[in-house]
Amino acid sequence: MSSGTCQPHHDVFADVLTAGLCVGLVISYLPQHLRIILAKSSEGFSPWFLLLGSTSTVAGVLNIIVKQWEIVRCCHVLSAGNCIEATAGIFQLFIQWFCFTMILVLYMLYYPSHLKFATVDVDGRPVKTEIKRDEWRLSITLSWIVFLFTAFFASITFLLLGTESSPDSVRLSSWATFLGVSSTMLAAFQYFPQIVHTYRHKVVGALSIPMMCIQTPGAILMVTSIAIRPGTNWTTWSPYAAAGILQGILLVMCILWKLRQRELGLDDFGNPLGCPDMQDTPVPVAQGPIDGERVPEAVSAAVETDIHNVHEEQVTEVTPLLKQDEAPSKGKDWLGWIRG
């Protein structure tokens, strides 16, 4: 589209590249979304990583909207096809924002229940309280910050676009630069909390390696696609260049931890392979006699036996770990193994 007119400008290479990236973005994020949903856990994510990523993508979308607002205003005189072609860059960054923000939504929905509230030890038995754990409280606070940040910055952007008659006004230009620089800085710092979080826990958690394998090299195409769009400059594509480099570092770390987990016989959440999923219970759960059936009743019966020192047998067919010929005094050793 030529400067100052609403004549359509066709660029086959840019159109094909943008269309491919839009499809690629959705495909690349699907493994991460499905991994959280299928695992029913978002453990392993840093809430600061999600905060910085969500706000960075918001600022990036608003930046390109301001930079291409003159093109957007031409849609009322262009055909639907030409309008979609001209604004494909905006749609591309919108998909990036939406898909990343969905990770934050799934993170909150599938936050492990056993990590939400603190537990206290009552007579050797962990009891859940109504007191929120620090990281769960932080996650709630940061989610609200993302919501307020999005609403506030979007309101200012569209207020300026509605009041400024010239797309080249100083205020619009300064605001677009501020959005671009902010997005770049947020993207640059985005991966540091996650890198530190993953390094400390030394497990992959709910992070998706396939997603990062697609997105890390795809960052080069993403930068190229944005850079060749009319009206954009370095403030528009630099956030995605910074994010691509740091995501590559996180990818290498996750691959190394994956190899380490395999050597130690652990799953992605640090549990021994072959053991039942224990993420939603405050203590390990005993297995039943049939196909590894989970029998939390066995734990409850054993705890009650130890507390009240009942000398009668508590053996049922669903508590195979408690032998009938064992003295009740051995229950303490068994409980010590559970609490260990």
Results as ranks from 00 to 15, higher is better:
172 L>K: 15
167 P>D: 01
179 L>M: 02
185 M>L: 15
114 H>L: 03
153 F>H: 09
103 I>C: 05
175 W>K: 09
108 M>I: 14
76 H>M: 01
158 F>C: 07
190 Q>P: 02
163 T>H: 11
137 R>C: 08
171 R>G: 01
149 F>K: 03
193 P>K: 08
156 I>N: 00
105 V>K: 02
71 I>D: 02
127 V>N: 10
172 L>G: 10
109 L>T: 12
101 T>R: 04
123 D>G: 09
111 Y>W: 10
82 N>Q: 14
157 T>F: 01
204 V>F: 02
80 A>Q: 10
114 H>W: 07
202 K>F: 03
72 V>I: 15
194 Q>M: 09
169 S>L: 06
76 H>K: 14
121 D>N: 15
98 F>L: 15
180 G>D: 03
122 V>Y: 08
84 I>R: 12
195 I>G: 06
119 T>G: 08
186 L>I: 11
115 L>S: 10
103 I>R: 04
187 A>I: 05
112 P>M: 08
149 F>N: 04
198 T>W: 00
196 V>K: 10
200 R>C: 10
178 F>S: 10
119 T>R: 13
179 L>S: 02
78 L>G: 07
141 T>A: 09
198 T>H: 05
202 K>C: 08
145 I>Q: 01
184 T>V: 02
212 M>N: 09
76 H>V: 15
113 S>R: 13
131 I>C: 02
100 F>W: 06
197 H>T: 07
97 W>E: 05
140 I>F: 07
75 C>P: 10
74 C>W: 11
94 F>G: 09
153 F>D: 00
159 L>E: 06
117 F>M: 13
168 D>P: 02
127 V>S: 07
84 I>K: 08
126 P>H: 12
